[in-house]
Nucleic acid binder design. Structure first.
Lengths: 149, 149
DNA sequence: TTAACTGCAACTATCGTGGTTGCAGTTAAA
DNA sequence: TTTAACTGCAACCACGATAGTTGCAGTTAA
């Protein structure tokens, strides 16, 4: 458990690609290419984003994925919450002994501390939007193009 | 990877028990009892706390574990940093395609966002000390004792 | 000398993850 | 109406991390 899954990274990557595409759509294969991964994995993760109302999928020929909201209205927290499950900081694997003064109180106390800490992280993730990320991608590309001149 | 390991919880639990004990020591067996776990696991985790300078261990008969610092000077972040490795938010499993405008820029951008988010969590963990946790344990016990009267 | 400790290596079972294959269902285009 | 390009989904594999356990060597006090 060295941290959460990389699903958040994949989700944010995909959302940024879709934002880059404007109102258009991309197939899971195209997204998988950019991720150097595979279409099924992409569909699994984008399926969760769809369930969360962040993207839409269209079946059949010429089908694919597109944003369901403006990039300005999608934060990294939205993506994170949609694809990541479980808590960041794991609690006790077993309930501690009730015979110990510390053991019978520590769980509730830790729960508060850990939840607060997780919320602090989520708050930070909620401050960046896909639009902001895309803007910085475009800025960097523009700078590179200018430097190549 | 549904979150980090429960080592932080174990470490904080153990530190609070040692603080409860004042300047005294506890054996890994005693701590394991309270955790409903096992002495080897406890020694593994407390070994890391020792390497981080948070606790001391004494070998041989009447040996055991004790705090190396005042509980006021030990934060949850100290425990977390000592026993947890790796990042909370996982990055891309593979470097993305360099052919994609988004793919070749997103990693650096995500790195900043994720590091900021992790730092926000750590900052919150750094605000609570073992002494604070112990105080709340004692408060709760006192209230329970009063209610039993 | 013995008993109570730590320290450490080795091993197991389990679980989540990323990755893959195969196939059914859907849709647009030829 | 056939075909090709998609999504959706279940099943499976390999891998790594974790919690837990056993066994034993080393250390120290009684």
């Amino acid at each position: 458990m060295a941290g959460l899954s990389s699903r958040s990274a994949v989700a944010i990557h995909a959302l940024t690609m879709l934002a880059y595409r404007g109102g258009g759509s991309l197939t899971s294969a195209e997204i998988a290419d950019s991720l150097a991964s595979n279409p099924v994995l992409v569909r699994r993760i984008l399926g969760r984003l769809r369930d969360a109302g962040l993207v839409r999928s269209v079946e059949g020929r010429n089908g694919g994925w597109s944003l369901a909201r403006a990039p300005r209205g999608i934060t990294l927290l939205d993506a994170y919450a949609a694809v990541e499950e479980g808590r960041v900081l794991s609690r006790h694997a077993h309930p501690p002994s009730d015979a110990c003064e510390v053991g019978r109180n520590i769980c509730d106390l830790l729960e508060v501390e850990f939840q607060d800490a997780e919320r602090a992280m989520e708050k930070r993730l909620g401050r960046t939007t896909v639009a902001g990320l895309l803007r910085r991608v475009l800025d960097t590309e523009r700078e590179l193009a200018a430097a190549d001149r």
